[in-house]
């Protein structure tokens, strides 16, 4: 008997919640449906059309062999490997440095939070180009770091830092770490400090409390930030171009080279599509597990 009543209630229940009454009360003007159309047309014309043009170029200028040309090009194949390796290392570095920073920001006192947030924002809003230029000044053979080390008598000859993987990884991590820090910080703010305190009351050392409580609870934020940084690193052009060795070509450089140096727009278009394909694939696969909205930071409004 009770089971039947419960089922009946279940059947009845959704109805009062459903919108009709609500909708009748508030007139939802179809106006809002229509004003979006010019904006959607604008986006289609200015953003989708260029992407479609890349697609057609890659298959018709001169033909689909652009893709085999791209894949068979030694430069492009090596650039894929170089770029993925770089993106991977940069992501790891960003995550490693983000944990202490985000933790201090989420749990620190007012003063330290203000200092850390201020430094982060100033860096974040200094453009990639300007920061990369700064690293060039710092890492040059005659640059600030080498000169200081020589003046201190620590080294005799300048250390080759610029135009190495080291300088690229450092510059990239410097540009991209704010993204992992901010996602990780947002995630850590949702973890109640009481949880850590409880663990410590039960006798866990601070490090154990962190490893067993904070770390696992913060992993979704770390994953989202890490994926975002990985995907952004794949398409980077400026930093590898200025700080990297001329022997190492990255995907962005390979594409621009095909178009502007070899004047093979079709092959460049094919390579662009391959890059876009990798980016979308990573986002879709990762999005299945942690949600695209979370990776792109779209959940703020919800």
């Amino acid at each position: 008997m009770t089971a039947v009543i419960e089922r009946d209630i279940e059947l009845l229940e959704p109805q009062p919640d459903k919108a009709p009454g609500f909708l009748a009360r508030i007139p939802r003007p179809s106006f809002f449906s229509w004003i979006g159309i010019p904006a959607l047309v604008f986006m289609a014309l200015v953003f989708i059309v260029p992407l479609v043009v890349i697609l057609t170029k890659s298959f018709t200028d001169p033909g689909p062999q652009n893709f085999s040309d791209a894949v068979n090009s030694g430069i492009f194949r090596r650039s894929l490997w170089t770029t993925i390796k770089m993106a991977f290392f940069v992501t790891i570095v960003c995550l490693l440095v983000s944990y202490p920073y985000a933790y201090a920001m989420a749990r620190g006192g007012k003063l330290i939070v203000a200092v850390l947030l201020g430094a982060l924002m100033l860096s974040f809003w200094t453009s990639t180009l300007v920061r990369t230029y700064a690293w060039q000044i710092l890492l040059n053979n005659t640059g600030v770091i080498n000169k200081t080390l020589i003046n201190l008598g620590l080294i005799d000859e300048p250390i080759q830092m610029i135009r190495t993987n080291f300088s690229v990884y450092l510059g990239m991590a410097h540009v991209l770490a704010p993204f992992t820090i901010l996602t990780l910080y947002a995630q850590m703010r949702t973890i109640k400090p009481e949880l850590e305190q409880a663990a410590q009351v039960m006798g866990a050392r601070p490090s154990v409390a962190f490893l067993r409580i904070t770390l696992p609870l913060s992993l979704p934020g770390a994953a989202a930030g890490g994926i975002l940084v990985f995907v952004m690193a794949l398409g980077f052009y400026i930093t590898p171009q200025i700080l990297g060795s001329s022997r190492d070509t990255y995907i962005g450089t390979a594409i621009i080279q095909q178009v502007q140096v070899f004047l093979k727009t079709g092959v460049g278009a094919a390579e662009s599509l391959i890059l876009l394909g990798i980016v979308l694939l990573v986002l879709l696969v990762a999005g299945k597990f942690i949600g695209i909205g979370r990776i792109l930071g779209l959940n703020k409004g919800e």
Binding site: G235, S272, L275
Partner: peptide, 9 residues
């Protein structure tokens, strides 16, 4: 979409 790709388009 990576800026290099959009830029080419």
């Amino acid at each position: 979409v990576p800026t290099v790709v959009a830029g080419l388009g």
